[in-house]
Computed example of a mutant assay.
Amino acid sequence: MPASEVVVVTGASAGVGRAVARAYARRGARIALFARGAGGLAAAADEVRELGGTALPRPVDVAEHDQLDRAAGEAEANLGPIDVWINAAFSTVFGTFDELSPEEYARATQVTYLGFVHGTMAALRRMRPRDRGVVVQVGSALAYRGVPLQTVYCGAKHAIQGFHESLRCELLHERSGVQMTMVQLPGLNTPQFSWARSKLPHHPQPVPPIYQPELAADAVLRAADRPRRREYWVGGSTVGTLLANSVAPGLLDRYLARTGFSSQQNSDVDDSARADNLFEPADAAEGRDFGAHGAFGGTAHSRSPQWWVARNQALLALGGAVLAGVGAVLARSRR
């Protein structure tokens, strides 16, 4: 994509969205930053400008379709036609199903699932008439495999996966020039675990291994640049989870029932001043900027062998072909 590309990032004030905005800024992109928290948005916009990009921050609740659509119109009026739309905003509640209220469930689903639907609607409304553009859905390994304590998040990610597959088929049917792809992420070291509402006795944490959000940002940019693949997988835990769920889902259920509660909590992290961003942003104008990283920097990985393989498939294929050719020559020489 050209350096002057116009990009929309939802959930841009923190976590993966923040890391994605930084990565696009280094390419000189014009970036519309959408999120609820004014404080986090302002800090993200400053970073984008410092890194060489153009920033248009807009406080938006993705659960409200009209808000998001108006912001998309402002983005095109100020930055130009949108080339790439990235849906990354979400909210969730950690806890067992019986601890969650209908109001909490509705709110988290509206943000995490319908926010992606609303974002995609706003993007396609503008991209379809031009017959070009890319929509990237930021997904999760939990779109394929639910885990305990995250019924609302897993349900929403499963819904996004089905929505993505269905809509992608429709675009293919009409031979649209608009491309859709999805990035399935592993556990990440983001502020999600410090500001999502939690009913747990200890600080929530991702299912290990944990990776830094910059790895996710790299995958999102690669997916946007090469969107013909239906989805991209990042992190060692994602493929293993998918394979285990495909081969022995019942055994995996029992394994997660035994280990999924303790592996998603960390008693070493101080939870006394916990934030809560379910109904109101935790990074409001008077609040602190949470940035891209969470509380697990000491254990989070900045590299993933699986993602290296995915990024270098052409190189590996060439190496395999060379080795096969050498083997064939050696075999002939021994005859």
Results as ranks from 00 to 15, higher is better:
L124H: 04
V117P: 00
R145F: 13
A63M: 09
R126W: 05
Q150E: 14
E104N: 09
L124F: 06
D61T: 04
P102Y: 07
P129S: 11
I86L: 06
R132I: 03
H65R: 15
G119R: 01
D83A: 12
A72G: 10
D131Q: 13
R70M: 09
A141G: 14
A122M: 11
G146E: 08
H65V: 13
S140P: 13
L142Q: 11
A89R: 05
D66Q: 15
A71D: 03
F90M: 14
R70Y: 11
E99N: 09
S140D: 05
L100A: 10
H118Y: 12
F97Y: 12
P102M: 05
S91M: 03
R128N: 03
G146K: 06
V84T: 06
E64T: 01
Y153V: 00
Y144M: 09
M127F: 09
V93W: 00
E64P: 02
G115D: 10
G80P: 11
T92R: 01
A88W: 02
V117K: 01
L124A: 01
G115A: 12
G155V: 03
R107I: 00
R107H: 14
G119Y: 01
V136T: 04
P129I: 09
R130C: 07
G80W: 10
S91F: 02
S101V: 05
I82Q: 02
E103V: 06
D66K: 07
A75H: 03
V60R: 02
G133T: 00
V147K: 01
F90Y: 13
D83W: 04
A123I: 02
V111F: 05
Y113A: 04
V152R: 00
T92A: 09
L79T: 06
T96N: 13
T92K: 00
L68E: 05
F90A: 14
N78A: 15
P81T: 15
L114M: 13
P102V: 08
A75R: 12
A72K: 01
C154P: 07
G155D: 08
V147L: 13
A88L: 10
S91D: 02
R132Y: 05
V135P: 00
N87H: 08
R128P: 00
E74V: 07
D69M: 06
Q137K: 03
T120Q: 06
L79A: 09
A88N: 14
H118F: 14
F97I: 13
M121Y: 15
M127A: 06
V138T: 08
R130T: 08
D83V: 01
T120D: 02
V93I: 10
E76Y: 14
